[in-house]
Amino acid sequence: MGNKITVKNLNFFYGKDQALFDISLKIPEREVMAFVGPSGCGKSTFLRVLNRMNDTIPYARIEGEVKIDGKDIYKAKTDVVALRRMVGMVFQKSNPFPKSIFDNVAYGIRINRMHSSKKDLADRVEKALKDAALWDEVKDRLPTSAFGLSGGQQQRLCIARALAVQPEVILMDEPASALDPIATQKIEELVVELKKDYTIVIVTHNMQQAARISDRTAFFMLGKLIEVNPTEKMFTNPDDKLTEDYITGRFG
């Protein structure tokens, strides 16, 4: 399978502070790649490079090359709106809009004018909710507030919302870190299910989680990419001493 995302010699700065150092990485299509590493090592920053979310930070600066499907997404003529539609994002803390469950999922479809009729819109919302394994739990309460859902349901709603605009890549920043074990397990099962259709990059603090759900793991430390390997190798026979120390819990 080909590489969906190719990053070459990426340096990233918050003003004068450099957060990422000379990162080169290939992310294969329809696989799950996990980003692990101690907090503050730049995982979120890197994730937000991939959908240009850092554009909202005026003092942020980037060097190097980030290609998705072979196209440099930092080229001047890049359509950021189209990019963000193709590269969906799920955040650490679930962030539903102050709208109904239906309208949350419909939001991205509406702003991107993807539906042909009211019926089509409803069908798309239903499909997204089904794909996010949430439909059965909410089908009778679509017009009610999204804030009435449990934490785990809210996070799956945010996943449904991201799926509704038919992305190709989904970025997840510690999507289960605020959830209880059962809700976490649901998210994990969902990720494994979704990789059939999507390329997924997931940041996680939880080594077992990375081991359970990812095909490849990238280990970051202090803004540097220390090692990237198939997850199985990473957890049994890592190339780098630092990786081994981190995985076995000697620091971090």
């Binding site: 959908n51 979310m53 909202t56 709106v81 189209a82 963000r84 539609r85 969906g88 994002m89 955040f91 803390k93 962030n95 539903p96 809009f97 102050p98 939001y107 991205g108 702003i111 991107n112 945010c158 919302r161 991201a162 605009v165």
Partner: peptide, 17 residues
Amino acid sequence: PKSMREGALALGAPQWR
């Protein structure tokens, strides 16, 4: 909250929307 804006931006919504 900033997270709510980012949620919308991440779906491809332009700033004014």
